[in-house]
């Protein structure tokens, strides 16, 4: 569930983040109305607490995946909650790319798409990896929360079996697994971020 969320929200968030950078006032394809709408949309979705998003999205979820409960149903609010978060992180990551380098590429006659691909994503790579790690860890947390409402997984195990049946050892073991997962993601992410930084 975490992995699927990360992939779908990752792609959507990357696209939205790039669009935010491009259509920003000082962006390559500055477009005020477009940026305004997208920016506000991202803000609104980020402002809704996830547990509430889980609840109010049920009709939408049912329309998309056919059911309002269970692991598959939890995917929809997870993606809806993660995408704007990641999009904003991507935007900030790409804004760390030196505007001078963007200008140099423009002066060389590189197209906007070429600049996204060959400059923004390349020069911002180590920063992108960092925010991706942050987002994946946040998804692990959200997934555990989704577990509480029948989403399955480690979170579900910890709450439904451990907490509600007073089996604290189950909570502890679930927690250890979750922590191990977080540390692993962080470790791998740091390794690649360092490798891409010169």
């Amino acid at each position: 569930m975490t992995a699927l969320t990360a992939i779908v929200a990752g792609i959507l968030g990357l696209v939205i983040g790039i669009l935010l950078v491009l259509t920003d006032e000082s962006g390559l394809l500055a477009n005020r109305p477009f940026y305004f709408v997208l920016d506000k949309l991202v803000n609104i979705f980020r402002a809704v607490p996830f547990i509430i998003l889980l609840a109010i999205m049920t009709p939408v979820t049912r329309a998309i995946v056919g059911t309002g409960i269970g692991p598959t149903a939890a995917l929809v609010p997870l993606i809806a909650g993660t995408t704007p978060f990641y999009a904003r992180q991507v935007q900030n990551a790409l804004l760390t790319v030196d505007p001078g380098v963007i200008e140099a590429a423009e002066a060389m006659g590189v197209s906007p798409l070429g600049i996204v691909w060959r400059v923004y994503l390349r020069e911002g790579l180590s920063e992108l990896i960092r925010v991706s790690v942050l987002t994946i860890i946040s998804i692990i947390g959200l997934t555990a929360m989704a577990g509480a409402v029948g989403g399955g997984g480690l979170g579900n195990l910890a709450i439904a079996v451990g907490y509600q049946r007073y089996q604290y050892d189950v909570i502890i073991v679930s927690l250890i697994f979750i922590l191990a997962l977080v540390f692993l993601v962080q470790f791998i992410g740091d390794f690649f971020a360092r490798k891409s930084h010169h």
């Binding site: 001078g100 140099a104 423009e106 002066a107 197209s111 390349r122 020069e123 790579l125 891409s196 930084h197």
Partner: peptide, 24 residues
């Protein structure tokens, strides 16, 4: 826009802060 990009290749530019790509 496309033709302008082509013309820009005939005009080189260098900058105060060099503007090189650190990842390359």
């Amino acid at each position: 826009a496309a033709h302008l990009r082509k013309e820009r290749k005939r005009i080189g530019m260098i900058f105060q802060h060099f503007n090189l790509m650190n990842s390359r």
